Amino acid sequence: MDPRKPTPELVLDPSLPANVAQILRSSPGALKSARAGVVPRPCGPGRLTVVTVAFLLLLALLLTGPWGMFVLGVVVTVLRGAQVAAGDPKQREARRRLRVAVEHSDRFVLPEDLDPACRELLARAQGAVEDVLASQVDGAGLLDSIDNSVTLPAEVWRLATRLADLTRTRAEHERIVPRDVPADIAGVFTPYDEVLDQARRSLAARVTALEEYAREVRRADAVYRAYRQLGVLRERTPDYERLLAETVQDRLAIPHIDRLSGQAREVERVFNTSIDEARRAGSHLLSLTAA
């Protein structure tokens, strides 16, 4: 596992509206409560309160007529408004966040939703994606084979949901399959074990593809930095040529100047090759995503 990212982070469905995503991202406690099955209390009055108020209004109608019932209704409304206004705003906000988390409980994956093996895979995938999106070559638009800002978060979301599904299935499998299976019938469970292993290997291959893409991008970044530095030197080549001509004979200076130009062309060739390799790694990633 990447030591920079020992544990994975929350994963949100990238298709969520921005305001909902912001609420979920800033409400870790609400997300955990929603996952634990906590249901937010209704905002309105409870059933007992409604029955009591209805009884009082009916009683006022019988004793004082419509006018008395109207006055009592106004009083009840004012008192209820004062109660709401006096309520703790932090509690109201907490209920609102919990309600959003419950309504979108299938649109996020928590680290706690995964077993240790799946958490490691997700952490590796997130680390690789962060490297790509933080790279200079991606920021400069040089990796134009895929739209990383859209494709990579979608790939992480697909991985996270499949890892969560694998975790649930594996936990259920361990509950169902007895630990003390007699040796002569243990083989009947083998096909089910193989399905779980195959699913894990498939997801691990997708993570490896992401990491390979990130490695190619990091290499392209290093060459890109050298390429840009070379560009600065190219602008100053006449100064170097002048210094060389002033210090050595012309017949020795010309080959040296040619060598400077050749080295510049070589760095440019390596840079273009590196970008092509990164693009091919991205295309391979896309082919896995489509599979």
Rank of each mutant, 00 (worst) to 15 (best):
G139I: 01
A18H: 02
V188F: 14
R225H: 10
D88G: 04
A123T: 02
C43H: 00
L57H: 04
S135Q: 04
R124W: 05
G73M: 09
G37T: 06
V181S: 09
E155A: 13
A164I: 03
A18Q: 10
R219H: 14
Y240P: 04
A199W: 11
V50A: 05
G141P: 01
P238H: 06
L252A: 15
P42Y: 12
S26G: 07
V74D: 01
A125V: 06
K32V: 07
D2R: 08
D180R: 12
V248N: 05
R107H: 14
P17F: 01
I185Q: 08
A226L: 10
P116Q: 02
R107N: 12
A140R: 06
A36M: 12
R99F: 00
D258V: 10
R107G: 06
R280Y: 10
V76Y: 03
H173T: 08
P3Q: 12
S287G: 08
V50S: 06
D193A: 15
V51M: 14
Q22D: 14
L10Y: 07
L252F: 11
M1D: 05
R175W: 02
Q22C: 12
G87L: 05
R206G: 14
R280Q: 13
V75Y: 05
R219V: 13
L61S: 06
R269K: 11
P6K: 12
A36Q: 12
V188H: 05
T289C: 01
L61W: 08
L152V: 09
P255F: 03
V100H: 03
H256F: 14
R99V: 00
P191I: 07
V20E: 04
V270K: 11
A160N: 04
A82D: 02
R158V: 14
R225P: 00
L48C: 10
I254N: 01
L72W: 04
T7L: 13
L152Q: 07
D131M: 08
P14N: 06
R259F: 07
G231H: 03
D276N: 09
L233W: 11
L203K: 07
S15E: 10
R279D: 05
S145E: 12
T52R: 14
V53D: 15
R92Q: 12
G37W: 01
D106G: 15
V75I: 11
V102M: 09
R218Y: 03
R234K: 14
V71C: 01
S105R: 10
T237R: 14
A199M: 13
G282A: 13
R92K: 15
R265T: 15
G29A: 08
G44Y: 01
G81W: 09
P28Y: 09
F55D: 10
V100L: 09
V267K: 04
L56Y: 12
S33E: 15
R269M: 05
P191V: 10
G139Y: 05
E268K: 02
R170I: 00
D131V: 09
R162Q: 14
V102S: 04
R4H: 01
K5W: 12
Y227N: 02
I146Q: 13
F189D: 08
L58V: 13
K90I: 00
L16C: 07
R206Y: 05
A101C: 09
L98R: 04
